[in-house]
Structure formats: structure tokens, C-alpha cells
């Protein structure tokens, strides 16, 4: 296990963690404020990736496509809130789960009809394709650095917005006292729609950023949503800070586990046994982490104080 590889995999873990945060922050925001469980949140991530992929070909530029896609996915989230989610707020969580499960089937099938069953790979412009040398022997793809920068910037923006702006103040107030905020003359329905749209933009952004690395594909949303659940369970459902820390922990553990677990196992078992068992264990690592956190802290690492 040399340092070069460790640094590179560490950065990969950071990147995964930040993408997870983008997805999980929307989920935890919507749950914390609207008390709404949105299984279809992963579909927003997928739709974001597909829209961006199509627009990349249309504009012949990934960056322009990204900038145009963000408001589009926001509008999509806004409409989803008005048409489906809003009708379910007053219901219990079982209704949320089943209703949004149905919505996933609808959105996935429509995406299937529009974009086809095969994934779409997204080409990057040349200036994003290169590598940056950190030291003489550590090279990092430029695009990965861009993901990390974009992830950190969005996280910072989100924290600033929730904690220091009027909109953020209204959101926090609306979470604890809906009638009070309404009495202030704020249209609470529009406020909630905006929160939902914001979650959609964050999830969509994550999908757009990952698309050039993996590709935009049908199953992507349904895979990440469960990992995002693990993130918010570990972090404490409804807590933004918890989601951020848990996302980074999980991103790093998952990445390093997949990269190094066989080497670690080889220290105390035969290399053949290590090679066989490492993939199995590393695929379960984050769930085992979740289980142990829950065992000691059922409400997660940073349970929000008031609801």
C-alpha cells in the first residue's frame, strides 16, 4: 500500500463523499422541513444526468449544458412537488413511500422511452480531460478536481443559505412552526416548493457531475438513493451537518475499502482467501458501519435538536 495510491484513492473517496452529500442534502432538507420521505429523489439525480447528457450534444459543450440543465432540473423538481409531493404531506410515511415508489416507476419508464435502455456517455472538453500533477508521481484528473471543488462550493453555499439568509431563516422557521411563518405573510406553499426544487437541483447537479465519469444510465438513481439513505441515517435524519460528515465518512470508507481491503486482509490470511473475501466484505462495509452507528446511537451521529 503506497502513499501515492492512498492519496489518489483518498481524493476519490472525497469526491464520492461530496456527490453523496449533494444527493443526501436534498433528501435530508426535504425530510427535515417537510417531513416527507422522497424515494424518487434518486430519479432527480438520474434525470439531471440525462438532461445534461442530451444538452452536451446539443450545445457541444459540457459546461454550457451543465449551466442550462441546473434550472431545468429545478423546474422539474418544482413541478413534481406541485403535482405529486404536495398532496402527500399530510399523509403518513407509508403513503410517501408507496406514492414516490410509483413515481419512480413512472419517471424511470419515461426516461427509458426518451433516452433508451443503454446509458449515454458524456464527452468532456479537452481542457477538462487532462491530469494535474500534485507531486512528481501523483497525478489527478482535472475533472475530478472540478467535482471536488463544485461539491465543496455547493456545500458552502448551502450552509450559508440555510444559516445566514432570509430564505434560510424562513425555511428553518417553517420547519418548526408552519402557522407562524404563514402569519408573517409568507406563502408557505411556495416556500416548500422552493425547498423541493433546491433539493432537486442539488441531486441533479450530482448526477450531471458523475455522468462524464460513469455515464447517464437508467439504474443510477435507484442505486444511489439507498446509499444516500445510509448517509442520512448515519448523520441523523434532518441534520445538514450530519449529512455532510456522514457523506464524507461513507465516501472515503467505501472507496478505500474497495481499493485496499484485499491488501489489509492479506496481512492475516492467505492472499487467495483475501482476494475472495475482500470484495464481499467491502461491498457491505458502509452497511456494517450504519449498523454499528445505529446500535450505539439509534438517532444517528448528529440528531437534530428540535423538530
Amino acid at each position: 500500500m503506497d502513499t501515492t495510491l492512498l492519496v489518489i484513492q483518498g481524493l476519490n473517496g472525497l469526491q464520492l463523499g461530496l456527490l453523496l452529500f449533494l444527493v443526501a442534502s436534498g433528501l435530508t432538507l426535504v425530510f427535515g422541513i417537510l417531513d416527507f420521505v422522497n424515494l424518487a429523489h434518486g430519479s432527480l439525480y438520474m434525470v439531471g444526468a440525462f438532461i445534461c447528457a442530451s444538452l452536451t450534444f446539443y450545445f457541444d459543450s459540457f459546461l454550457i449544458a451543465l449551466v442550462v440543465s441546473l434550472p431545468l432540473i429545478g423546474i422539474f423538481g418544482y413541478l413534481f412537488e406541485i403535482v405529486v409531493a404536495r398532496k402527500l404531506y399530510e399523509r403518513d410515511h407509508l403513503d410517501h413511500v408507496l406514492g414516490t415508489f410509483g413515481a419512480i416507476l413512472v419517471i424511470d419508464t419515461v426516461a427509458h422511452i426518451i433516452w433508451g435502455a443503454n446509458g449515454i456517455s458524456v464527452p468532456l472538453p479537452d481542457y477538462l480531460e487532462g491530469q494535474v500533477s500534485l507531486t512528481s508521481d501523483i497525478q489527478i484528473p482535472v475533472f475530478r478536481l472540478l467535482i471536488i471543488a463544485a461539491g465543496l462550493a455547493s456545500a458552502a453555499l448551502l450552509f450559508w443559505m440555510v444559516n445566514y439568509t432570509r430564505l434560510g431563516m424562513l425555511i428553518r422557521a417553517g420547519a418548526s412552526n408552519r402557522t407562524m411563518v404563514s402569519a408573517l405573510g409568507v406563502d408557505i406553499k411556495t416556500l416548500f416548493s422552493l425547498v423541493f426544487a433546491m433539493g432537486a437541483v442539488l441531486a441533479g447537479l450530482a448526477g450531471m457531475l458523475i455522468a462524464p465519469i460513469t455515464e447517464a444510465s437508467l439504474g443510477m438513481g435507484n442505486n444511489i438513493i439507498i446509499t444516500a439513505f445510509v448517509v442520512i441515517i448515519v448523520g441523523g435524519i434532518g441534520s445538514m451537518k450530519g449529512a455532510f460528515i456522514a457523506a464524507l465518512i461513507i465516501g472515503v470508507i467505501d472507496t478505500l475499502g474497495r481499493a485496499f481491503l484485499d491488501d489489509i486482509f492479506a496481512l492475516f490470511m492467505s492472499s487467495e482467501a483475501a482476494e475472495n473475501s475482500a470484495p464481499a466484505i467491502s461491498s457491505m462495509l458502509i452497511y456494517l458501519l450504519m449498523a454499528s452507528v445505529l446500535y450505539f446511537k439509534p438517532a444517528g451521529l448528529f440528531p437534530p435538536k428540535v423538530r
Binding site: V84, L98, G99, F101, G102, I104, V106, D108
Partner: peptide, 19 residues
């Protein structure tokens, strides 16, 4: 899955008092 999902959404949304 499209009509199936749609049906599920509609049943949840419009059954009185929900599931």
C-alpha cells in the same frame, strides 16, 4: 411499468385518507 406506476401514484393520492 408506466401505467403500473401511475396507478400506484393515483391510488395513494386519491384514496380517502390514504393507504
Amino acid at each position: 411499468h408506466l401505467p403500473f406506476g401511475l396507478m400506484l401514484v393515483l391510488v395513494v393520492m386519491f384514496s380517502r385518507g390514504g393507504i
